[in-house]
Design a protein around this nucleic acid. Structure first.
Lengths: 124, 124
DNA sequence: ATACTTGTTAAAGTTAACTTTAAGTCAAGG
DNA sequence: CCTTGACTTAAAGTTAACTTTAACAAGTAT
């Protein structure tokens, strides 16, 4: 049931290069290799990579993701800190959504009215 | 009523360097300079910069913003194309919001349940 | 056995959006 | 007049997150 790097990349919508890069950066410490040196991706690896993608797509940096992962590796004792990291990231996401909502309003207004509120005099 | 580069930067939450960079990239073609060569920011400039910030904060690249600005400079004849640019950007914003909403759900779930669904075996 | 595809590493290259540096100009206060 | 602080330019430097390259090894199809 283990996938090759290409298969895993396809499932995740990433490229093999990106997966190698993540591995090199230490984001995939649980990854195993076949005896000939090929990376093999288990269901567990894919789940962890899905979480990585989620965090990355919502603006968490590789460095921060790695920090979070290190906390996970340390086990029970870091539960509180992990929760705090996620809470902070949650506020971050909410802030981004607010910013986007704001921009959306402005863009919507422009779409409906840009003839009347042109920025340049030439555009008024 | 015209502002210095520092004053304008403060109003916009940017740095003077960033404004110079935008100017250099051709994003501020309407900007005037005092006879001693200092940039002066009018109300109109600030409005245009606010729109730039809006587009930038919602993920439009400097290159795309410059393209949009060039359309504005060309006047009436580009109204349709400008509207299309904004419509495409609107879909882009909506897609980003959807992505964030998705990530938010996952993060919320993790916050509430991460003890039970740990990624690493050590974390279960 | 041979050719093709997929994998490996280390290291260098890319891109966007700034930021910093260096060297100089301008305006105001004492 | 002199210093101080804000401004100017051009050019080089920075950072994140990849991507590409080169040189090589392994697995698969004919």
């Amino acid at each position: 049931m283990n996938l090759s790097i290409k298969q895993a990349a396809d499932q995740l919508g990433l490229t093999p290069s990106t997966l190698r890069y993540y591995d090199k950066e230490g984001l995939l410490p649980i990854l195993k290799k076949s005896k000939s040196g090929f990376r093999t991706f288990s269901e567990n690896d894919l789940q962890w990579l899905n979480l990585i993608c989620c965090l990355k797509n919502s603006g968490m940096s590789i460095t921060e993701i790695k920090h979070f992962m290190n906390l996970c590796l340390q086990g029970e004792s870091t539960c509180e800190e992990r929760k705090e990291v996620l809470e902070r990231h949650k506020s971050n996401i909410l802030k981004q959504m607010e910013t986007l909502q704001n921009c959306l309003c402005i863009v919507n207004y422009k779409i409906d009215h840009y003839k009347e509120i042109g920025i340049f005099h030439i555009d008024q």
